[in-house]
Design a protein around this nucleic acid. Structure first.
Lengths: 328, 328
DNA sequence: AGCCAGACTGTATGCGCTTTCATAATGATG
DNA sequence: CATCATTATGAAAGCGCATACAGTCTGGCT
């Protein structure tokens, strides 16, 4: 079913059918009705490829995330989706699983779709890629990586600050031996979190950090926690890179017959909904994902926000039941 | 950057560039190298819309799900993604939030992309829509709804059987007053689960079912559980439509100072990973999502599986720690 | 030298749509 | 009734690419 076929049956030109489709220019209401009727009958649905090829513009924005299974990314995706739909845009999502190769492939693919904008909510990054993106005429938003430049806006979370808050809090509770549950330790922004935690050692005398990593998943969190809890002396607190891994760590603590927080304190990061439903509820650091989503929408669709800008998000400590005084 | 521009700079025709792009027909290796070099320099990425318009074919398959935030749907999505990537296809996802209107919009949009195939993993359904889809030349797979017909394959889970297993199990533990935590009770396949549970009443003397609903989310599960647990006499078991809502229910039970399973047993459905990380771990019914994903891939891409077919998935009871004997 | 198969490359058409630009129908006005 | 401003419609030119077809060039033959 093509537009031309509709035009033929409605006894009008393709131009008129196109006008009806984009309900724009003036079309006599009787003609419009006739065309609409034919469309119904033929179950016509316009070829999106032809539309964006001919029209030049595109109502699609691309979103690339590192791990769609982590609610953190999903929440941002949903926030962007809400804003996009409100503005009449559609989203296309790609998932990289923290693989730089898949990121490159995803970006190339997205670019091929000639989207109205591109959001990369990823922790991995190819240096030359970001350079390359700057050349393209489409607006891009990076979360966590890259630097602002032409057509590129950056959103950055002050992990350093968030981790410092967490470290001070745990230190004040008497914790001196802390395990860090992470993933992909070599990736820049994720490395930053460990580093920030390590730096806290300088400020807090006697604080020691041990690191273990696993996948970014419940199971990965459990496995990393298993390594850490197996050491002797055992850490009295587990700082996890995000809430999902923290819930995995929580499970490992319990499986070992230990109690949270009496024996081992556990903290997350992100403050996803799950953090309020775990047992015990999770002490974590809130990152305003809806706000991040809104900024992305503004940059990519409003057209109001200039590029070459950087937004810094300040995370907030949220204390719940998974942390307590260090055991003596 | 267009193919034509590349052709000009490489001093060849657009046809040759196209050949290089689709690394098909014979191109002298020196020419190929020259073209490739120009592509690099120009950071050329082919316009996907032009490609699929000119080429007619498309390496994209569309996936529509009811609620991407529920790991059940996400797992199926991921399974399909794995199979698709292996076969050189890309996925485009749409999310309906259980809204029939959004389903219609999503399907129309997907059809506009002229995908190689379409998978609808949704619980809501518009009767006329399914009819309309049958007319289109693209293969479609429905999960949970619809009926097999030309170009349409169906995958169906035997909820009746799964619920019956659950009911018998709980009955054998002495439970007589059971609360059902659900969502969107009016939707066909979801209604089927309640109905199946109700039907079990006939087989098990004295079994009573009460129903409460909330969103398909952790919070929704908690709220529905709140309603149920507030009643008097209190149900001794909460049967939840899926694991996510069950984890929400678990939280509500605990918040009220009740114990699981000593005071209240809780069951889920789907057996997502989270079910093994909740406290206590969740008794649930396993649905083989990877298998479902594989069937979808076979139907949409292999071309081997004929349409007008129906696959029935048999769910399995998985007993964990959230269920126990009914309190006296 | 003459011929031909095969490898290589260019030309030209069309995919389904949007969008000027030009034209025709309509109504308002003097 | 003539005139002009609108409004409604059509004809045609691409958008960037794939591809059928035709053409050129190479080397191996006889």
């Amino acid at each position: 079913m093509t537009l031309e076929e509709v035009a033929r049956r409605a006894r009008v030109s393709t131009a008129t059918v196109s006008r009806v489709l984009n309900n724009g220019a003036s079309v006599k209401s009787s003609t419009r009705a006739r065309v609409l009727k034919v469309m119904q009958e033929l179950k016509y649905s316009p070829n999106l490829h032809a539309q964006s090829l001919a029209g030049g513009r595109s109502r699609t924005i691309g979103v690339i995330v590192s791990n769609i299974e982590n609610p953190f990314f999903l929440d941002i995706y949903k926030a962007v989706e809400t804003g996009a739909h409100a503005a009449g845009y559609e989203l296309v999502m790609a998932n990289t699983d923290y693989s730089p190769e898949r990121l490159v492939a995803s970006i190339r693919l997205m670019l091929g779709r000639r989207p109205a904008g591109l959001a990369a909510i990823v922790s991995e990054m190819d240096a030359t890629l970001i350079q390359e993106l700057s050349g393209h005429p489409i607006p891009v938003v990076f979360y966590d990586v890259g630097t602002p430049r032409h057509n590129i806006t950056n959103i950055r979370v002050d992990y350093r600050s968030g981790m410092a808050k967490l470290a001070s809090y745990l230190y004040s509770l008497g914790h001196r031996r802390v395990g860090y549950v992470g993933h992909h330790a070599t990736l820049g922004p994720i490395h930053e979190r460990v580093q920030a935690l390590r730096d806290a050692t300088g400020k807090h005398a006697g604080l020691e950090i041990e690191v273990a990593t696993g996948d970014d998943s419940l199971e990965g969190g459990r496995q990393a926690a298993r390594v850490l809890l197996g050491r002797s002396p055992r850490p009295t607190a587990l700082v996890c890179v995000n809430d999902v891994m923290a819930v995995g760590a929580l499970r490992e603590v319990r499986t070992r017959g230990l109690r949270t927080p009496e024996d081992v304190s556990v903290t997350g990061f992100d403050n996803v909904t799950l953090a309020q439903f775990s047992v015990p509820t999770l002490t974590t650091v809130h990152i305003p994902r809806d706000q991040i989503g809104r900024v992305i929408c503004d940059c990519l669709m409003g057209g109001g926000v200039p590029s070459e800008q950087e937004f810094v998000v300040e995370p907030e400590l949220v204390v719940r039941d998974s942390t307590g005084s260090a055991p003596r």
